[in-house]
Amino acid sequence: MKTFENVDVKSVKEAVGLLQKFAGEKKNAAVVGGGSEYLQLMKVRVATPDYIVNLKTIPGLNYIKEDAGGFRIGALTTLAELEEHKGVQEKLLFLSQAAGEAASPQIRNAGTVAGNLCQRPFCWYFRSASHVCLRKGGEICYSVAGDNRYHAIIGGGPSYIVHPSDLAPALVALDAKIKIAGPAGEKTIPLEKFFVTPQVNARRENILGPADIVTEIQVPAPKTGSKGFYYKARERQAWDHAIVSVATVVQSGSGAVRDARVVLGGVAPIPWRVPKAEEFLRGKAIDDAAAQKAAEIALDGARPMKDNVYKIDLAKNLVRQALVASV
């Protein structure tokens, strides 16, 4: 790694102030939580910060609090802690499972919930220091003419990365909110609005500014009669990102769907919510045919590249399975 200075901060305010100062001085600074993901970018010199702001030294940012409204999860809560939390297992089992599907035990023990949502892409061109791709300030997305077997089939262009998070689809399906601290104070926004497509910004995956940090995730209590699922397809049984994943939350009553969320992971540059499929399901009794139709609608508009056509059938099947399991 290039030489840099690690700065341990003691509060969110100090972190934001420091990041603001570095930004003002045009210094290259980065925020690190668990560090597992960002250190790898530094080792291959895709990221070469002069300063690292270490958030792990902030006390009181690691918690899961439960009340009538739902769960509040501190940014520094580890994936393992989220997976093992009794209340989460009891009320939102699929969120616990999504956390447990991420990476490997060692990474779940170090990696944080906020860090999982803020991961940089695992596109092999992005992670290669010898490819100055669009996402790193270059001219082109190498996946277009290159090997694109793991790239986006929907929502891509001009960059075709896929969002690597396992938690993000599950949390978006749960209508989670994210709390962000920045120079202008704190704000809480729907998690869905946190992520940005490459059409908006091809160099970033989310709205965080240089002095913004994630402080909390808020998950509303599940509605009566709702069931959630997270299904993940991957090449190895362990330590692998999703080729395709799907998170569904279906609220049923009197034999019909009252409300539904269908969110795909691994297929688009952001967690890909499909409101048209949700709309189709509303008021229906889910059977094989309805689930199949919803899956078709979810993948409507997918435009695969030469090596990733297979993702369409994979995604349709996962959506269908998750919906059938919901009734």
Binding site: S36, E37, L39, K43, P105, Q106, N109, A110
Partner: peptide
């Protein structure tokens, strides 16, 4: 690079990749 696990140590009771901690 935090993939193989050969560097695994136990930190405060939890196993982690020591190559991925400063």
């Amino acid at each position: 690079r935090g993939e193989c696990g050969a560097c695994t140590v136990i930190i405060d009771g939890r196993n982690m990749y020591s190559c991925s901690q400063l």
